[in-house]
Design a protein around this nucleic acid. Sequence first.
RNA 1: GGAUGGGUGGCUGAGUGGUCGAAAGCACCUCGCUGCUAAUGAGGCAAGAGCGAAAGCUCUUCGUGGGUUCAAAUCCCACCCCAUCCGCCA
Length: 422
Amino acid sequence: MLDIHFIRENAEIIKAGAAKKHIEVDIDHLLEVDDERKRIRQELDAKRNEQIRRSNEMPRAKDLEREKLLEAMRHLKEGMTESEERLKKVMVEWQNLMLMVPNIPDMSVPDGDSDADNLEVKKWGTPTEFSFAPKSHVEIMTALDIADFERGVKVAGFRGYFLKGDGVLLANAVWQLALKHFSAKGMTLLSVPSLVRREPFMGTGYLPQGEEDLYKTQDNEYLAGTAEVATMGYHMNETIDMNAFPIKFLAFSPCFRREAGAHGKDVGGLIRVHEFFKWEQVVLCKAEHDESVRTHEWLNRNTEEFIELLNIPYHTVVNCGGDLGLGQVKKFDIELWIPGEKTYREISSASYFHDFQTRRLNIRYRDAEGNMRFPHSLNSTAIPTPRILVSIVENYQQADGTIKVPDVLVPYVGKSIIGGAQ
RNA sequence: GGAUGGGUGGCUGAGUGGUCGAAAGCACCUCGCUGCUAAUGAGGCAAGAGCGAAAGCUCUUCGUGGGUUCAAAUCCCACCCCAUCCGCCA
């Protein structure tokens, strides 16, 4: 959510930003509604003031005086009720419109409709070459019996999967390495709920628009698609000591996504599943643009470093306007080489939001001048499993159908070849 | 799920219908005292919104939403959350 004063003063910039993000929003209408809101508000305030003043005379009033006062109050009250009802109606519309206003994308965000228009800003390594025809992770993992997709679907339905044997070890090894790599960056470890109430989803910007993509329980909680939601909720409705910044979390959680709009895409395999696990980096920092930008680069770099440890070819893209969420100012995706598809696929997403989320979540701090401020928030994938297994398995596959374990993972997997005779 | 007690400012906590945005303490800020620290004295100190050049004036907020009343932190209803006990279960 943006500040209404900010919206008022920067209406044209916000309209341009929304256009860049391909989000429809009627700012002029919002401003009209806001005018109306202010007008009714003032009118009501005046009536309330009178009501309070007279009410305070009441205890001192004598019988006759009292009757006169009561009569006058009755009249006043009718007018108040009428104004209150109008205000309530306007407020509902105002709130709904406010929740629809997107954050402004950064100047450096390229134009474009979809992820096809994202711009490569970095390339690391070269696509893995094979002396044989490389297989897909589904073929490799099924053959080695370290994943079972058929039974996964039997038990869990569409997009279901089992990891098995060394597949489990491999996933676990990635977690362990991630724990080591990212916590060395000075982040506080957090294991967070996936079952989350509505408010943090509203606050992070996943609701009200994203209802379709979320699983919901019969008790009206939602299953989070990322640890970001609960982690941002952690400080919801709190005033934070400014000396605590930057607050850096490395959060772990199961993640659930309905993938409602992706029915034809990535059918089968571990690329797109309903249920997975993810380490997520989340940062709250002081409300300074430069610090957000620096932190954003840092978060993204942390994940790049991790991929480099695994020695998997990747490139980093800056996402175009059309590929940005409502609250995002700028986003980097890291995409790993997938030999089976001969393309790069997303493994990580790093975004910053300025105070868009913290305003919605009511997370504040008092700055050095004594003013209440909303801090900035950022988040970035550290590493998701099992998706990361796709690129490990496919890039490290060998002619005989075995998988070479990346050197850095060997200590955690406990072997250097998966599928070999050991 | 049942019973009981709770939810008040940055924190602790008083306040059961009227001038209460709210005692007291802690924390914090300013000034004074002090060689320094400690201790101490005086004063200040919730957030949000509107009007105003400013001083200031006004409105809202005591978990959330409704209701009663001229008037609600205080009474009534619903919901959320916390604590304890019981039940159930890992």
